[in-house]
Amino acid sequence: MATTIMPPPAPKKVNRVGLEQADYKGNKSTLCAGCGHNAISERIIEACFELGVEPYRVAKLSGIGCSSKSPAYFLRASHGFNAVHGRMPSVATGTVLTNRTIMALGVSGDGDTASIGIGQFVHLMRRNLPCVYIIEDNGCYGLTKGQFSATADLGSKLKTGVVNDLPPIDTCALAIQLGATYVARSFSGDKKQLLALLEGALVHRGTAMLDVISPCVSFNDHEGSTKSYSYVKDHDEPLSDVSFIPYFEDITVDYAPGTAAEITLHDGSRLVLKKLRSDYDPHNKAEALRLLTASHDTGNLVTGLFYIDTERPNFIDLLNLVDAPLATLPESRTRPPKSVLDEVMDSLR
């Protein structure tokens, strides 16, 4: 009897640290099928795989909301901390200060960030703490059944017909104004742009704030909503075509000189912005704020990297912290000797 010889299975693709993409997955998502947040998790998995991020070096952090549940759905092998509503920034700060070798990857929602968490958010931006801060922005409180959030656009409509009559908080404008050093907006459905922006954010050494429009298919994906798939597809106006080139992949990209800007990131990786708009310079704070203000008036959703500053010292640099994780310091470095206590006591006698 003839036997069929099976061809050997194709070798699995591994990255520079020897891991497969599957190693970056998490538990099965319990979010609604089609939720924009799931697509963002997918891109995070891809970005970490492509960059060869070591999962043990990542801390996944979040607040409360559907978006904040998502750290369970990527990077299974990493530590994670699901904080209280709106207060992931303080946990992120503690995490990074106690161990500066950790990459803090924060996921928040527009409700989590722009309402209850706005106080913590603004101080995180101002400190330029090295971390990635993603807002999965659906313009509503998905987890509590779709009430308007503070990023909902003026005049946008809830499923129930309620119209939002308050202006939105533009988290990107706020972040730029306050001192975040990598600020971008993208769309959960734009695989290429989101992946490039995430990769750039992961190697940036300062606060990288990404506002990702992420439609809530259950409560905010209907006509009248400005954060729905169809609205964003029609109104998305990419600032530039972004490509990310990791430092270990020194391939030349084809772009016509004069139409692209190249940004070198902290680890030597590069972001290449192919210009769709003439003369947009992401190093210019005033221009970034002007662009965002103008886009509010036209109702167009501008996406891309608005602002980057690779020079400003981050919070860790300012604090002049030791390199070693604090928990690994021997007692001789964390408890001053008896002579020091005696000296203090003597000085008070």
Partner: peptide, 9 residues
Amino acid sequence: PKAGFLTRG
């Protein structure tokens, strides 16, 4: 690889 876990309330 077995060190990580997700702390949740």
